[in-house]
C-alpha cells in the first residue's frame, strides 16, 4: 500500500491512473470545480460499471488507504444509483481529494458485490443500503437489519414508489387520530 505522506497527488493523476488500469469499467468521468472563499476545490465523479467497482476501488489503494465516507444512493425510476464516496490524501493541509464512484443497478437485478473485503468499515453502510433500497449485497459478512424498525420489514423507504412505506406512513398518522 502506498502512502501519500506529504507528496501532493493531483486529482487528474488519480483519474488518469484509474483510466489506465480499469479504463473499460469507466463510463463517464468528470472533475468538478467549486470555489471556496476564492480558492478552487476539485472533486472527481466517475460513473462506472457494476462489474468494475472493486477493481476501481483497488486502484485507490495504490495511493493511500482510502477513506470511505459513506455509500449514498438515489432512486432514478427504473434504476437505483449507488454512490461510493471516497477520500484520498487526508493528513496533508488542503490536499485531500474527494472521489465518488457511481454505479447504476437495474431494479430487476438489485445486486452488488460487497466491498467489505477491501474496506471492513463499509459494513454498516452496506447493511443500510440493503434495508433502504432493497438491494442484495452479495458476500456481505453480516446481513442483519441495521436501522429500521421491525414493522418496516418489507418496506424500502428510499424507493420512491414503495407501497409498503407509503402504507405505513399513512397508517402512523391514522392510528394517532383514532386514539
Amino acid at each position: 500500500m502506498g502512502e501519500i505522506g506529504g507528496k501532493e497527488v493531483r486529482i487528474e493523476e488519480i483519474e488518469n491512473v484509474i483510466k489506465e488500469k480499469v479504463g473499460k469499467g469507466v463510463i463517464t468521468s468528470e472533475i468538478r470545480k467549486r470555489k471556496v472563499v476564492g480558492k478552487e476545490r476539485k472533486s472527481l465523479w466517475m460513473r462506472i460499471k457494476k462489474e468494475s467497482l472493486k477493481d476501481v476501488i483497488k486502484v485507490l489503494f495504490d495511493f493511500q488507504y482510502p477513506h470511505l465516507s459513506v455509500i449514498s444512493g438515489s432512486d432514478l425510476g427504473d434504476k437505483v444509483e449507488l454512490l461510493y464516496h471516497f477520500t484520498l490524501g487526508y493528513g496533508e493541509p488542503q490536499k485531500e481529494q474527494l472521489i465518488t464512484f457511481a454505479v447504476q443497478l437495474d431494479k430487476k437485478d438489485l445486486t452488488i458485490p460487497t466491498i467489505t473485503d477491501l474496506i471492513p468499515g463499509a459494513l454498516l453502510t452496506e447493511r443500510e443500503k440493503q434495508e433502504f433500497f432493497g438491494i442484495k449485497v452479495i458476500g456481505i459478512p453480516d446481513s442483519r437489519r441495521a436501522f429500521l424498525a421491525d414493522d418496516l420489514k418489507n418496506a424500502h423507504p428510499w424507493i420512491r414508489d414503495d407501497k409498503e412505506t407509503a402504507r405505513i406512513a399513512k397508517d402512523v398518522h391514522a392510528k394517532e387520530v383514532k386514539k
Binding site: 471556496v36 472563499v37 480558492k39 476545490r41 477513506h67 477520500t87 490524501g89 487526508y90 493528513g91 496533508e92 493541509p93 488542503q94 490536499k95 485531500e96 474527494l98
Partner: peptide, 16 residues
C-alpha cells in the same frame, strides 16, 4: 490517523 476535514478539505472560511 491525521484526518480533519478542516485541514484536509477546507470548507467555508477554513482555507484562510
Amino acid at each position: 490517523v491525521p484526518k480533519d476535514v478542516r485541514q484536509d478539505f477546507p470548507y467555508i472560511a477554513y482555507p484562510d
